[in-house]
């Protein structure tokens, strides 16, 4: 048991070690101007500096909070909407083109409009993240819900279940996996949209930090920002996967 845990840990670690090695390799190979690639240890030093002197944690907190709120609000709306679209076929035929239309718009293209309608405050950033999470989540939800087989509902009916019992005891358990998938997808999309949302006059946040750094060509700061975003997204995803595997022990292919 212990051996297999250690092995899995090493297996998980190996690609990271490889990535860092590749990073050094590219820098030292001379193919790319070394001044354009800060070395990993320089980035690490910058990270410590930002953490201790520039309040990097504030940026991390600001961004995480935005993503979290945007995803929560987006999913809160996406779950019922996606459910209804998946459940009622006519609703789907009716709403499908519209959803795909809005989903195809890159959030960054909407920023000018968002500024006009929502100003440049926190609300504007949340609107962008909400938009991205909602459309990612709603698609996952309705695809999932529309694939629920009527078999289980029929079984429940023949056992004597009423409408409400069917909803609570059959439809909800069958929907939970899709809600969790929608959450995961939305989280991924929201982190990807974060930098765009922080284009709107943000003072703090990892996206804002990256943009400010790019103005002054501070490559090491940009690297720190990018790695932070990746790490936080990874941690959030791991937490969600933990929750999923707890809630979905019954699934044939439970996420592990």
């Amino acid at each position: 048991m212990d051996g297999s845990v250690a092995r899995r840990f090493l297996l998980g670690l190996a690609p990271w070690v490889g990535a860092v090695a590749l990073w050094y390799g590219v820098r030292w190979s001379g193919f790319v101007n070394a001044s354009l690639i800060p070395a990993p240890h320089q980035v690490a030093a910058k990270f410590v500096e930002l953490l201790l002197q520039e309040g990097l944690l504030f940026d991390v907190f600001a961004s995480t909070r935005r993503v979290f709120l945007g995803v929560m609000l987006g999913i809160l709306v996406a779950v019922p909407v996606g459910f209804l679209l998946g459940w009622y076929r006519p609703a789907r035929t009716f709403a499908d083109p519209m959803i795909n239309f809005f989903r195809a718009l890159p959030p960054i293209a909407l920023i000018p409009l968002v500024i006009v309608y929502f100003g440049v405050d926190e609300v504007a950033k949340l609107v962008i993240l909400f938009y991205a999470s909602f459309f990612a989540g709603v698609i996952v939800m309705y695809e999932g819900v529309s694939q629920i087989t009527p078999l289980y509902i029929r079984v429940a009916q023949t056992l004597g279940a009423g409408e409400f019992e069917i909803f609570r005891k059959v439809i909800i358990p069958l929907t939970v996996p899709h809600i969790l998938t929608a959450l995961r997808v939305a989280l991924g999309v929201a982190w990807a949209t974060l930098v765009a949302s922080e284009l709107i006059a943000a003072q703090r946040g990892l996206g804002a930090m990256i943009q400010n750094a790019s103005t002054y060509f501070l490559l090491d700061v940009i690297y720190v920002g990018i790695i932070c975003i990746g790490c936080i997204a990874l941690i959030m995803d791991m937490i969600l996967r933990r929750i999923s595997s707890r809630l979905l022990v019954w699934q044939e292919r439970a996420v592990t």
Partner: peptide
């Protein structure tokens, strides 16, 4: 009218 389905329909989440 109790039904035993050809596909069983055992609830996987229970």
């Amino acid at each position: 009218r109790g039904v035993i389905f050809q596909e069983y329909g055992v609830f996987p989440w229970l």
